[in-house]
Computed example of a mutant assay.
Amino acid sequence: MRVAIAGAGAVGRSIAQELLENGHEVLLIDKNPRSIKVEAVPRAEWLLADACEIASLDDAGLERCHVVVAASGDDKVNLVVSLLAKTEYGVPRVVARINHPKNEWLFNESWGVDVAVSTPRLLSALVEEAVSVGDLVRLMTFRQGEANLVELTLPEDAPLAGQLVGSVTWPRDTALVAILREGRVLVPSPDDTLEAGDELMFVASQDVEDELGDLLSAH
């Protein structure tokens, strides 16, 4: 998979390193010469250019990219890059970084954003996830599909503890995508048994979250 990352700061370089280790092709784009640190991520391609300009994105060959990540520290730049990637180059997947929570409402399909990642919101969600048992915690929003990645740690007295995954009638537009148990990641099958203490990861539409929380909670 070919991925272009607009913004070669610490965040962009870290994303690039992870993707390269997972076998993907990565292009880093930044207009600031001080951000072009080839020695930091030597296996990536580098382009000194303004990612908000069509000519730069033509040079980057954005039409050949499967994913674009708008990872700069400027929300205006990330929105423009997202919009151009989606509307001008038809990039299938656009992921954008939100730097300021007040701008979160802008990062949606109207601006070409498929997945918006808000660092403050994500940190807040992870804190909740660490201390919450029996409460549904929203970790991430997938804007285009109006679906969320949510997590719940199954409490000891949960009614579903001991039941088979396949025997549960989940709410509509809900998918159990992973079970975290004793340091392992399990891909759930219908024959797996839910256990107290399991961290359950779901992708679910926003309007069924309350129903899902009620089903999983002990109350």
Score class of each variant (00 low, 15 high):
Ile179Pro: 12
Met1Asp: 12
Gly112Tyr: 03
Leu122Asn: 01
Lys86Tyr: 06
Arg121Ser: 13
Val95Cys: 05
Asn103Thr: 05
Cys65Tyr: 04
Leu186Val: 11
Val177Thr: 09
Arg172Glu: 15
Asp198Met: 05
Asp30Asn: 13
Val168Cys: 15
Leu136Lys: 13
Thr87Lys: 14
Asp59Tyr: 03
Ser205Gln: 15
Val187Ile: 15
Ala8Asn: 08
Ser132Asp: 13
Val185Glu: 02
Val94Arg: 13
Pro159Lys: 06
Leu106His: 00
Ala161Tyr: 03
His219Asn: 14
Asn108Arg: 04
Val131Leu: 15
Leu176Tyr: 04
Leu216Ile: 07
Gly197Ser: 07
Pro171Gly: 13
Lys102Asp: 14
Gly213Thr: 00
Ala4Phe: 08
Arg181Leu: 10
Leu83His: 14
Tyr89His: 06
Glu25Trp: 08
Ser217Pro: 06
Asn78Gly: 09
Gly23Leu: 12
Ala85Trp: 09
Glu151Val: 12
Gly162Tyr: 10
Phe142Ala: 05
Val68Asn: 12
Thr141His: 13
Glu88Arg: 12
Leu83Thr: 05
Ser82Trp: 08
Asp74His: 10
Gly197Ala: 05
Leu212His: 09
Leu200Ile: 02
Asp157Ser: 11
Leu200Tyr: 01
Asp157Lys: 14
Ala70His: 02
Gly7Cys: 06
Ala130Phe: 02
Glu45Gly: 07
Gly7Met: 10
Asp50Arg: 02
Ala116Lys: 01
Asn103Phe: 07
Thr141Cys: 04
Ala4Tyr: 12
Gly61Asp: 09
Cys52Gly: 10
Val69Thr: 02
Pro33Cys: 05
Glu146Asp: 15
Asp74Ile: 13
Ile179Trp: 09
Leu160Val: 04
Ile29Thr: 01
Leu79Arg: 07
Pro190Ser: 12
Ala44Trp: 10
Val177Cys: 09
Leu20Val: 07
Ala161Thr: 00
Lys86Ala: 15
Pro120Lys: 04
Arg138Ala: 13
Val113Pro: 01
Gly213Met: 04
Ser82Glu: 05
Trp111Ala: 08
Leu139Met: 12
Gly134Tyr: 14
Gly183Ile: 01
Ser56Pro: 12
Leu154Cys: 05
Ser217Gln: 08
Gln17Arg: 09
Gly9Met: 11
Ser189Trp: 09
Val81Tyr: 07
Lys86Thr: 04
Met140Arg: 15
Ala218Ile: 00
Ala85Cys: 06
Gly162Ala: 09
Glu199Thr: 13
Ala16Tyr: 01
Pro190Leu: 12
Asn148Trp: 03
Leu48Trp: 03
Lys31Ile: 00
Asp74Ala: 09
Ala96Val: 02
Val26His: 11
Ala51Cys: 01
Pro92Lys: 02
Gly134Ile: 03
Ile179Glu: 12
Lys76Ser: 11
Glu109Cys: 00
Val95Glu: 07
Val133Tyr: 06
Val26Gly: 06
Arg143Ser: 14
Val81Arg: 12
Ala204Gly: 00
Ser35Met: 15
Val3Arg: 08
Ala85Arg: 10
Arg181Trp: 08
Phe142Leu: 15
Pro155Phe: 11
Glu195Ser: 14
Glu25Cys: 00
Asp207His: 15
Ala60Arg: 07
Asp74Cys: 04
Ser189Lys: 15
Gly112Ile: 01
Asp214Gln: 14
Leu176Val: 02
